[in-house]
């Protein structure tokens, strides 16, 4: 009795808010619903269009490039930060808090500060700093750098997360191994490359997969930095941004749902890989 009194309302709530939307979105892919008015059954038109639509594949490409630009540096820098914290020297507890700060902050808050700091004018804060090193003022929100600027923001906001994962991984490594290696006359670098790094491999794989999955869903930062658009010449038009614009700007809800299925498929594949990795290491 106790169990079902709780489970029945929860099952209804879950079905309504998680399963029904999935079914609706599948149904929508066969319609031309435009947010208002009536809808028609268009059969497989949306799906056919999806596979021949350059704009969709361009946006997928933007998302994948974004993931490469943002994830790889994060995986490396996060590890370096965790190693620094793991030295347990004086002050590292403070450094850890400081480096984690951007993680707890809303993307919109960070992006709205960045917009003021990265302005293209020569007296914008970042351009002034670059100027000190003799670098020409850059047009950060222009076509060429648009996506890189978003990726920089992504790195800034996720290295803290990567650091915490690695730090947890480092704490799990038996310090006796390090001691033994040092007694055997290994240098610090040898210990790192032959003991620490191989033992951190599962953590690294996990960080890589988790961050990639997050990066492919990027939306908030693009929306804020480029005022609801995909940036100049769609240079930062990510897949989710494209879904959003197709649905809520062009009012093609049916087609937007079809594109969203592409995102769903990609994330599902990544989740399966993630599940495999996590479980292999548990064994």
């Amino acid at each position: 009795m106790f169990v079902w009194i709780i489970l029945i309302p929860i099952l209804i709530q879950y079905t309504l808010t998680s399963v029904v939307p999935m079914l609706i979105s599948f149904f929508l892919t066969f319609t031309d619903w435009n947010l208002v008015g009536t809808w028609n059954n268009v059969g497989l038109d949306n799906w056919k269009r999806l596979f021949s639509d350059r704009a969709v594949w361009d946006s997928l490409k933007v998302s994948v490039i974004y993931a490469l630009y943002s994830v790889i540096p994060t995986v490396v820098i996060g590890l370096l930060l965790a190693l620094a914290v793991n030295t347990r020297k004086k002050g590292t507890a403070f450094f850890k808090s400081a480096w984690f700060f951007p993680v707890i902050t809303s993307v919109v808050v960070v992006a709205s500060i960045w917009k003021w700091m990265f302005t293209a004018e020569a007296d914008g804060i970042i351009n002034q700093v670059l100027g000190l090193f003799g670098i020409e003022p850059q047009f950060f929100f222009g076509t060429r750098l648009a996506l890189i600027t978003v990726a920089l923001l992504g790195i800034y906001q996720s290295v803290g997360t990567a650091m915490v994962y690695y730090y947890a991984g480092l704490k799990g490594i038996d310090t006796n191994l390090h001691e033994a290696a040092k007694v055997d006359g290994c240098t610090g670098a040898q210990v790192f490359f032959h003991i620490t790094l191989p033992l951190l491999r599962p953590t690294m794989a996990y960080v890589l997969i988790t961050l990639t999955s997050g990066a492919l869903k990027v939306f908030d930062s693009v929306y804020t930095l480029y005022n609801q658009t995909g940036g100049p010449q769609n240079a930062a038009n990510t897949l989710v941004m494209h879904v959003y614009r197709t649905g809520f700007f062009n009012m093609q809800m049916g087609y937007a749902s079809t594109i969203a299925y592409l995102l769903f498929a990609i994330i599902m594949i990544i989740s399966v890989i993630q599940y495999r990795i996590t479980n292999r290491d548990v064994e």
Binding site: V20, M22, I24, S25, K217, V240, V243, A260, L263, F264
Partner: peptide, 13 residues
């Protein structure tokens, strides 16, 4: 299921 994937159908619902 990513939140972003059902945002359109959630809006409709």
């Amino acid at each position: 299921v990513p939140y972003q994937a059902t945002i359109v159908s959630n809006y409709l619902l």
